[in-house]
Design a protein around this nucleic acid. Structure first.
Length: 281
DNA sequence: TCCCAGGCAAGGC
DNA sequence: GCCTTGCATGGG
């Protein structure tokens, strides 16, 4: 995939490995929107970009091109990844369904908070709650958007704050989580294995096996995980086997199959399954 | 209306 | 270890 950086934009030339729709709507990020003219606006931390399609491909317009070059994982060769996991019949079909998916490199704390909110929740409501947090606590980026708040700022919020945003029973987790994140040194995980990181993440309030995998995949650049939720249970039973019962055993099944690229395989399968619903791959 | 949503925590075995 | 239950809320 070819792209050119300049001062205020990244030009990504037409490629099967880059589709803003696939990247943003595949469920890995909650702070984005599609404008009426087809442009996408995407937010991470205090960073904002507008993605505009043109005849040659896409322009990522932003005043922080280095951030978004890494954010969109532009230096990774997705063709090689697709070749590695596409030997599986169903992953191959899923890739054909959404070839432009890329795994974003998003902020650790933002992902932790976002995916704690995601538990047993609808994507639309997840977005509404996160938007509320940013609108009420985040610094203003411009006329229409707010940054994700700092952890220090989030530590000022009490139970009522999250309840009035309709976070439901997750409110109590979010109050504790902010303080746990403030007291945590993310670099203490740099030298640890992914499975060791997962054990540590699951000590955080509201973080279980699935949310920990999402934090590792979307917020820590660890691709050797496989988040299993209700959708991936469906995928396992529909396309693979019926023997395993627990989500953790399904996770191990898929990680054994896809290894270091398990997270990529999961995201293609997840988005394809959610798009097709009852139809077959 | 009723079922479900990118599950987690706590308790029982 | 694995399995069950309660949980807030609102979308479809």
């Amino acid at each position: 995939m070819e792209y050119v950086k300049s001062k205020d934009k990244i030009v990504v030339f037409k490629s099967a490995d880059f589709s803003p729709k696939d990247i943003l709507e595949c469920g890995q990020i909650f702070r984005y929107r599609r404008c009426n003219n087809g442009d996408y606006i995407v937010l991470s931390g205090a960073h904002k970009a507008v993605i505009v399609e043109n005849d040659d491909g896409y322009e990522i317009r932003t005043n922080d091109v280095d951030f978004f070059e890494r954010f969109f994982d532009l230096q990774t060769d997705y063709n090689a990844i697709k070749n590695a996991i596409g030997c599986d019949e169903f992953v191959d079909k899923a890739i054909r369904q959404c070839p432009g998916v890329r795994i974003l490199k998003n902020d650790f704390a933002e992902m932790a908070i976002s995916f704690v909110i995601s538990a047993n929740n609808h994507i639309k409501r997840i977005q509404q709650i996160i938007d509320g947090i940013c609108r009420e606590c985040g610094d203003k980026i411009d006329d229409e958007d707010y940054a994700f708040p700092s952890i220090e700022r989030l530590c000022q919020n009490d139970l009522d704050f999250y309840n009035h945003l309709h976070a439901g029973y997750r409110s109590k987790y979010l109050v504790k989580l902010a303080h746990e994140l403030r007291d945590f040194d993310i670099h203490s995980l740099d030298t640890k294995s992914t499975e060791e990181c997962k054990v540590i993440l699951q000590k955080f309030s509201g973080v279980g096996p699935k949310v920990a995998d999402c934090i590792l995949l979307f917020g820590m650049g660890r691709q050797d995980v496989f988040p299993v939720d209700t959708w991936m249970e469906q995928v396992y039973h529909k396309y693979y086997e019926t023997g395993l019962k627990s989500r953790n055993s399904m996770r191990e099944f898929f990680i054994k199959k896809f290894g270091q690229n398990a997270g990529y395989a999961q995201q293609y399968l997840f988005y394809a399954q959610r798009t097709l619903k009852d139809k077959d791959l």
